[in-house]
Amino acid sequence: MSKQIQVSGLDAYYGSHKAIEDVSMTIEPRSITAFIGPSGCGKSTFLRTLNRMHEVIPGARVEGKVLLDGEDLYAPTVEPVSVRRMIGMVFQRPNPFPTMSIYENVAAGLRLNGRVSKSEMDGIVEESLKGANLWNEVKDRLNKPGAGLSGGQQQRLCIARAIAVRPQVLLMDEPCSALDPISTLAIEDLMAKLKDQYTIVIVTHNMQQAARVSDRTAFFNLAEQGKPGKVVEMDETSRMFTNPSQKATEDYITGRFG
């Protein structure tokens, strides 16, 4: 189920503005990779190039290669829609569909891909909600609107929605930044559990979080204000946080800037 991502020489633009430059990295399957760095350094932009969500913004484009188990996501024959089907995404703010029930929210992605029988759908919805550690809290009110849940529950609902379509990769863009500490802990537990099945990539502002949950960490930074963002360093998380090879990484991690 889980796949490796290889990025080489990737540039991303908003119109004529170059947001990130020459990013190359390998993201391993069945592990959690964290992106850290100061605001505006392009880590979220980079994350969105991995499932071709970047180009949703008018004027935005990408140059370079992103390979999913060797297959180029930006090849001319590949449709963005099918890329996103394989690479799920969880956003900064929980965004369940306000007009849909909890059940419909989880089923939303599945309904796109042809007919699924009612019993099969019930099974997948239950499995996904269990996978997102939400089942016990909502099993009695599956037909209530998803917007009625707490922020943390809504975010787990969004994770359930993303994993219901069985993606190969799960991208998480600061998934805890809008949540309280207890909900954050619940999501972090969930990530640890999900990494057995998925390639997980998470953007976070929270250094402790990166240290707690991730296996590998990439540090993004701007060369200077107005220049595009770059990957300064990428390594095992344990090594990165104890013995970084770059001065800038150390400064950032120890809180000297950012």
């Binding site: 796949k3 188990d69 297959e71 590949v78 099918s82 089907r85 190969q168």
Partner: peptide, 10 residues
């Protein structure tokens, strides 16, 4: 191939 095309009907 890992990336499947979306169905013709969609």
């Amino acid at each position: 191939t890992t990336i499947q095309h979306i169905s013709t009907s969609r």
